[in-house]
Amino acid sequence: MSPLEVIKVPMEYEVKLEIFEGPLDLLLHLIRKNEVDIFDIPIATITDQYLAYLELMKGFNISIAGDFLLMASTLMHIKSLMLLPDAVDEEEGEDPRLELTRPLLEYMRFKEMAGELSEREVLGRDVFTRKPSDEMAEFTKGESVPLEVNLFQLIDAFQQIVDQRLPGTQLKFRLEEWSINEKIESIISRLKDQKTLYFRELFAEEMNVSELVVTFLALLELVHRGIVKIFQTAFDKDIRLTAVFFS
């Protein structure tokens, strides 16, 4: 395969780049294209074509991801092993190409399962539920763009809670009864279970003022660290929080 055969017009080339998201995708394409048996991969041919493709990418000034290069070296290693007489039998008595076949097969299984999942009656594509009215809308599907809540709104909301629960309280500080870290953990674990919480749900009826304050500080800390996001679905709606997870 000459590079020119893969690409006819630059447009088409761009499309292909998207397809070969990784080295395994490219390998599968080459194996299909050459109509060869995955259990008997002509390693020299496939390696040459694989490298030609990388050259092509370079020719277009496309930076090649490390994954592609790693696979290139694996291919060349296997190719060299195959060239050695008897290498196939001596090295663990195993065909060196298995190093390629195994991950390819595993990858293909999940490609297939991905296809099967896509063919199901997917919610939001094939089937639909009733849409909850705004009053009951859950912030789950990003249907309503959440408004950010700023610190002052948050303090106001907190002040309201203190006024409601413990009217006429003066804030005094004594020995630490509640640790911020404990509260942080309890908020996180509640968010894990529930995904979103109302701001007022954080403050249980029986909490005294120091526990309320510590809970509030814990929330500020979580927001500060970027673990929790605070939002409203509309200006007049109750403030809610949700966890922001990092991958």
Binding site: V15, K16, I19, N34
Partner: peptide, 16 residues
Amino acid sequence: ITQGGGPEHGENEAPE
């Protein structure tokens, strides 16, 4: 066998 899971590339490559 895989049903291809979706390689959407319908390239019109000439046979080798």
